[in-house]
Every structure is written in C-alpha cells, then in structure tokens.
Design a protein around this nucleic acid. Structure first.
Lengths: 227, 227
DNA sequence: CCAAAAAACAACACCGTTGTTGATTTTGTA
DNA sequence: TACAAAATCAACAACGGTGTTGTTTTTTGG
C-alpha cells in the first residue's frame, strides 16, 4: 500500500518478444508462400526456431496467429500509402515497395482473391481519394474515370511485382526489368498507346459513351486524321 | 474369328461420363474458390452429387483430379486466346470472358501467385507476339514497350474481373461497372491520363530514358497540347 | 431375364494436425 | 543463491483427411 511507484520494469527473462516476432515473421512468410491458410503451426514454429508448444503460448490458436499477421500487414501497408513523396516518384516508389516486400504483395493478392476483402479499406479509400483529386486537377486530362484508372494502376503494379522475378534473369534482373515496366507505365499515362485516328471505333466508344452525349471536346477530331 | 466388325459400341450403363464431368466441374469451382489446393475429395464428391468412393473410381488420387482440372483449364484459355475478333472488341471481349468465367480468372490468378507458372505458356507467347505486332504497326504510337504494355493490360483486366463483383451493386452491377472499366482502359490507351506539359519529370524519364538518347519523335510535342 | 458396368455403402488403416496438460529445464534478475 | 518467467518436452485425445477393400445395389444392353 505504501509503494507509490509500481515498478514498470517488465521482467523479460528469456526473450519472449523476439520469439513472438520470429513467429509472426515465419507465419507471414509461409502465408505469403502458399496462401494465408496453407500452413501448419509446426511449420511456423520450426521456421521460427521455436518449439511448437511455445507457439501456442504466444497465440492461443492458429486463427489468432493468422489474425495477428493480417493486422500487422494492414498497418504496414497503411503506413506505405501514407508516405508523402514527390508525385513523379509515386509509380517507382510503389513498384519498388512491392518488389522489395514480395510477401506483402503476395498476401495482398491472396486477400484480394479470397476476398476476405482488401486489407485496410482506409488505405484503399485514401488511394482512391488521391486518384479523384489528381483527375480533377489541372495536371490531368479531361474525362478521366478516377476509380477505374485507380483499379488499372494498382492491378498493374501489384501483378507486375509478382511477375518481375520470373524473368530470364530471375530476381537479379527484377530491378532492371522493373525500370522498364515503370517507364512504360509512365509513357502510357502520358501519351497512351494507340494513335486515335487509327482506332475510330475505340475513339467513338470513349468520346460518345452511351447515348450520344453532348458534343464536348470536338467530335470531329478523328475524322481528319489519317492512320 | 468370324466376326469382322468388333462392335465399337462402348457399354455405358450408368452415366459414367456425366459423373466424370460433374466431378471436374465441382473440383474446378472449389479450387477457384479457395485456391487449387484447398479442397477435399469429400467436398468435391458432395457438390457433384456423387459418393466419395465414386470419385476415387474416376481419379486415382486427389492430385490426379487437380491435374485434370488444370489441364482442362489450360485448353480453354488457349481456345479463348485463339479467337479472332475485330481488334476494337478485344478489350471488351477479354473483360467479358473473365467476367463470365470467374473460376477461370481466379484459377489463373492463383496459378500466377503460387507460380507453378502461367498456365499455357503457348497462349502467353501468342499474346505477347500480338502485342509486339501491334506495337510495330502503324496504328500504335512510337516507343512502346510491348511486353510491358502486355503485362499492364492483362494484369488490369484479370484483377478487374475479380473485383468487379465487389462493387456496391454486387454481381448485378458487374456488367455495367465493367463497361465503365473498359471505357477508361480504352481512353487510357488512346490518350493517356496526364498532361505531359504538367509532368516534365515524367516526360523526361520517358523520353530520355537512361543516357540522353537521340531526340527522335519530336521532343516538343507535349508543349503545344492543351486538353 | 441375365450379365456386367457403374455407383453406393460401410468399414478400415494410416497419417498429420490441432489444442491441451503436466512435468522439466533454462536463464535472467533480485 | 533463490525465484519466477519463459521455453522445452513428451504424451495424449479428438478430429478429419486420404486411399483401400469388399460387399451390395442399381441400371441397362443383349
């Protein structure tokens, strides 16, 4: 009763924290490898260099372990998306990030597939908001559909980060190949890929969407072009 | 010995073929649902409306069943990619195809993830060849990197087809949302998204790749553009 | 009606995984 | 040295999956 300062010194005899972290990391690796459900506690414990029963001392059940990994993942991606960067480096940054953290990219894709749903909806919302702002700005072309463009970009980058290592040079060439990738992505964003005059039907589909809308943006543009 | 025409009539008492097909279909559905490894023979048999032991009469082991599904899948996607269509419908066609066959899209993504590798490398090669031809043609802009553009497109379409059903209107609105998607994709291919003059750094990265290259393709092009 | 194919059914052995329990050992701190 | 947290270890029950076997039932072509 007389003791006013209850010593906040947490007794940490053997390194419980380190083991906890090792277990989380091992679990994450395995989950990213074959899918978030395709692992056994034994495997995780073994990879963490820890006894199986020790794992059960840190996580009551296998499901708890999965949940912990997913929560951790959600935090990290949230942080990544929060980073403020020069806009011109955004594409490189995201591509590099996923390239450097393949487990995150893979787990994200698995989540998307199994659709427990996209991890960290806040992150996704922030991303989409940025897309809308960009589309509304002076720096963007008119007529962009920001949500759809957002889908296109994130899909391309995510999937690329998974494929990059499959090239002829393997993981070694991944970085180099990725520069090729981001360059083409930037090129596409700046200029597109087709010559509009050579694709009158596409042009029509894009410019006169459903019913013949109001003729903004010069409907005769394609007619004068020749291939 | 006297019988010259040995009757080629295959005795098919109870409908073995139908069951075989039902098993394949059930397996494919389940594999697409939770991943190509995440199913049990019992589940498959149950969904196929067939006894578990009957399943083992059609496929010696679980692995055989998986193999059969994957082979079937490979054939179908190969066929899809072989279809000759007006080029302007290609994007819609691919998007619709995956939208109408979600199991195929999902299985494909799972394969890509687990990277047993891309199903049907021939299909992929044919696709990349088409991209190269397109890039080399008069209808395309100069300076395209066909392989990378190919990656971008297929990733965007595949992932979209998985996401389409997650919209607010669910599966019902998927078709409508997909038209939004393909429209934006076409728009992007025709015009890009950014105003090059507003992104000088991107422009520099794209036009003067590593060392300052030869100034082909009018480097002043972006300066005169407005919307 | 008969014979044979195809399916259903029940029972089994085997294995790996989960989660628990209780006893035992290591190790840092006081 | 003594205490106690943390990790190890062995053993166990319960469960569910795979693959097999032998038997029985249904169906259908001849």
């Amino acid at each position: 009763m007389a003791k006013s300062p209850p010593p906040p010194i947490v007794p940490r005899r053997r390194d419980a924290e380190a083991n906890h972290a090792a277990l989380l990391k091992a679990a994450r690796t395995l989950m990213a490898e074959n899918g978030p459900e395709a692992f056994t506690v034994s495997e995780v414990a073994h990879r963490a260099g820890v006894n199986r029963t020790t794992a059960y001392q840190h996580f009551r059940t296998r499901e708890d372990l999965i949940g912990a990994v997913l929560a951790e993942l959600s935090n990290e991606t949230s942080l990544m998306l929060k980073a403020k960067l020069p806009r011109s480096q955004l594409i490189d940054h995201m591509t590099d990030y996923f390239l450097d953290h393949p487990e995150i990219a893979r787990l994200w894709m698995f989540q998307m597939l199994l659709d427990i749903q996209l991890p960290s909806r806040e992150g996704w919302n922030r991303y989409m908001k940025a897309m809308r702002n960009m589309a509304a700005s002076e720096q963007a072309q008119a007529g962009i559909d920001p949500e759809m463009l957002g889908h296109i970009l994130v899909a391309a980058i995510l999937v690329w980060s998974l494929q990059a290592r499959n090239g002829p040079e393997g993981a070694a060439g991944a970085k180099k190949a990725s520069r090729r990738f981001t360059k083409e992505l930037k090129r596409l964003l700046l200029f597109g890929a087709f010559k509009p005059e050579a694709w009158p039907d596409l042009y029509a589909a894009v410019r006169a969407p459903n019913a013949s809308k109001r003729n903004t943006s010069k409907p005769n543009k394609p007619s004068k072009m020749k291939i």
